[in-house]
Amino acid sequence: MTDLEPKHTKKLEFNLLFGLVILFFLCAAALLGLIWTPYDPKFQNFAVQLQGPSWAHWLGTDNLGRDTLSRLLLGSSTSVLVGVISVGIGSSLGLLLGLISGWLGGIIDDIVMRILDALSAFPTILLALLIAVVLRPNIWSAMLAVGISSIPTFARLTRAGVIATKNLDFIDSARALGARDARLVFRHVLPNIASALIVQATFAFSVAILAEAALSYLGLGIQPPAPSWGVMLRDAQTFIYQSSWATIFPGLTIAITVLGLNLLGDGLRDRLDPKN
């Protein structure tokens, strides 16, 4: 096995590095998309409908003659926004529920766990259907659906971490020294599960970007004319017999982004989690 180890570390570094590069480009594109794009992402130029890549339009144009690169850039801002907010919703509520459930135990633990079980019976898309019919489909309904559906994972992870640490000797000695519950949780328990939560948040971010694209594709998320990678694919599919270019670049962008974030998660996990 020893001869495998250097190779393994190299692969590990590759994951982390590749993931970080993609994350950097994603954030840069999201910021750039907000302040500058080659063309106005909503400007319709019917002289250049459904074109392939050219010097004027690097990634071609869509059915309304809008510049694909500009729309991808602005779409990345949407993706990052949805990702950050939904991971924020999922991780904060999940953390809170996990802490309560794991620390207090007993009947409260039972109740929280049953609620999480019930929540787990709804995949993101089901939640999105339900929330979209109540709020009408928009960016908020998508973020809520993606965020809520990630609560159980964060909560279970936190709960398991709390249960594993709360009976350890160092917690008992801190308690004996007069530390209160809040101090015990924030100073002693949370730092112990922080790295697992960071890894989970990375994966949740990647899941959120994939889910936003899918929901917007289905008409349950971002609504046209606002550019979202999912909406772009929906439009492009309608005109697939006229031009295939518009179906290719948004999909490639989603795939590369998600691949990068997944590898970043793998890399972080290998780095931060001593058990792996």
């Binding site: 994939l210 899918a214 594709y217 694919l233 179906t247 989603i254 795939a255 691949l259």
Partner: peptide, 21 residues
């Protein structure tokens, strides 16, 4: 890794592009 990153709806659209269009 590629399979996990490629969204199913895009994979579907690519199949349509190849096998139908």
């Amino acid at each position: 890794q590629l399979g996990l990153a490629i969204p199913s709806f895009w994979l579907g659209i690519m199949f349509v592009l190849i096998f139908a269009v």
